[in-house]
């Protein structure tokens, strides 16, 4: 059994209240257990390598239903761990080790990074702020009232010339709106980052996935002192009302995926 069984990693914490994990089940319904080494606690569960080994895993990750169920199970455990320890380093989906011994090895080898990540995360929480710009509202805000009314050049042309002039006005209004939106997003990020211990900008979200209209001009993550959480919420509120056509959205608290900073190495070590 031990030979075919891998270990799926959820999170690594210090001073974890293990009672909180009683009866907790993770990916594929397996009960979670902990692997400890000198104060660091890794929360893991057994997974069948026929389903979670490198090759089958790659195939399964392309199956959206499988992925959704797995991600939900992973997230539930990570959230529970986060609530039961002063700080927890969440591991990205699909970090799999070959057995408890390899998990322990990982804890030993990555100790300095894990310690510093945990120190950074203690007493702080990750929040997400997204800004959506409505292109039409932005373009309307500073475009001339009537499109195509550019100089006297259009007066002598026919339908084709009028079309070109109209397109030109549309395109330049759009470009200007895009520039304004992106400059505004930079400013938003600077103001929010000033409240945070650490800040990161993620690539904008695909509107197809988020199901929201408008450009996602800012997709930021902010690691904020718990004492300053209210200040952040107030800042989001204030900044959201500043510019017509740009809407802000505060999400969280999240497991600190954006600031754990040990993922790359952990994944390499897990191989």
């Amino acid at each position: 059994m031990a030979d075919t069984s891998g270990r799926w990693l959820y999170a690594i914490a210090r001073e974890l209240d293990t009672d909180a994990l009683t009866g907790l089940r993770g990916v594929a319904g397996a009960p979670v257990h902990v692997v400890e080494d000198a104060g660091l606690v890794a929360v893991v569960s057994a997974v069948d390598l026929a389903e979670f080994g490198a090759e089958p895993l790659k195939r399964n990750l392309e199956d959206l239903d499988w992925l959704a169920a797995t991600a939900r199970a992973h997230d539930a455990v990570v959230t529970t761990v986060g609530g039961a320890a002063p700080a927890a380093v969440p591991l990205r989906l699909a970090t799999v080790c070959l057995g408890d011994d390899r998990v322990r090895e990982l804890l030993i080898r990555r100790r300095p990074d894990l310690e510093s990540a945990l120190a950074l995360l203690t007493g702080r929480t990750e929040w997400g702020v997204k800004a959506y710009a409505d292109p039409d509202a932005l373009a309307a805000a500073d475009a001339p009232a009537e499109p195509g009314g550019q100089g006297g050049q259009g007066s002598k042309g026919g339908a084709g010339t009028a079309y070109l002039l109209r397109r030109k006005a549309q395109l330049s209004a759009r470009e200007k709106a895009e520039r304004n939106a992106s400059a505004h997003a930079d400013r938003l990020h600077r103001e929010l980052a000033a409240l945070a211990t650490a800040a990161r900008r993620h690539p904008p979200q695909d509107p197809k996935l988020s199901g929201r209209k408008g450009w996602n001009v800012l997709n930021g993550a902010y690691l904020v002192d718990d004492a300053k959480a209210d200040e952040l919420a107030a800042a989001v509120e204030r900044l959201g009302g500043e510019v017509e056509g740009v809407r802000l959205e505060l999400t969280g608290p999240w497991p600190a995926y954006s600031f754990a900073g040990v993922e790359q190495g952990a994944e390499e070590a897990a191989r």
């Binding site: 042309g157 339908a159 084709g160 010339t161």
Partner: peptide
């Protein structure tokens, strides 16, 4: 002007 008109019509 004629060329502009023709290009405009084509694109339209």
């Amino acid at each position: 002007d004629e060329q502009v008109e023709r290009i405009g019509l084509t694109l339209m």
